[in-house]
């Protein structure tokens, strides 16, 4: 198995061509994370509220338009402060007439929904910040 480090020039070229903001690869041999426009991204980020060490983020499992509420319901699936179970839906990706359900990986408390309503999101984009139960 070759090290992912050997492929960084290729990966960087793909990232530049793709329009993606970030590329992350995890494998047994290592872990690579490439971020485009890092300086801009950091300065543009809102100052994060102080958080416990275990803060986590639910990431998009694919490409689609993010929905915080089920199309039959006016109210969002989760909001700040909600306690959620592992496997509980926290958002949806709409792809045409299909809905991909985004679920909480672990029991947690919702900090905030970070994705914008109806925004097109891609694989790995941050959707919902959570504080896993300790």
């Amino acid at each position: 198995m070759t090290s992912p480090l050997a492929h960084i020039p290729d990966l960087a070229a793909w990232l530049a061509a793709s329009g993606l903001a970030e590329l992350e690869l995890r494998g047994p041999a290592g872990h690579v994370r490439l971020v485009r426009g890092r300086a801009d991204a950091v300065t543009a980020a809102a100052p994060a509220p102080p958080a416990g060490p275990a803060r986590d983020v639910v990431r998009s499992p694919g490409v689609g338009h993010f929905l915080s509420a089920h199309p039959l319901r006016p109210e969002p699936l989760v909001g700040p402060g909600d306690r959620i179970a592992a496997g509980q839906p926290v958002g949806l990706l709409r792809v045409g007439d299909l809905l991909v359900i985004v679920t909480a990986p672990v029991a947690a408390t919702v900090i905030r929904v970070v994705a914008q309503e109806a925004a097109l999101v891609g694989y790995g984009d941050s959707l919902v910040e959570i504080q896993p139960e300790g």
Binding site: R73, P74, A85, A86, Q88, P89, I101
Partner: peptide
């Protein structure tokens, strides 16, 4: 005991219990 969504395929283990109840919202569709 974990909330799931309508109009969605879901996996149930053997012995799993599914409960449907009226939604609190009086405007629930259908």
């Amino acid at each position: 005991g974990v909330p799931i969504l309508p109009w969605t395929g879901a996996r149930a283990r053997a012995g799993a219990v599914l409960r449907l109840a009226r939604r609190a919202s009086p405007q629930a569709w259908g």
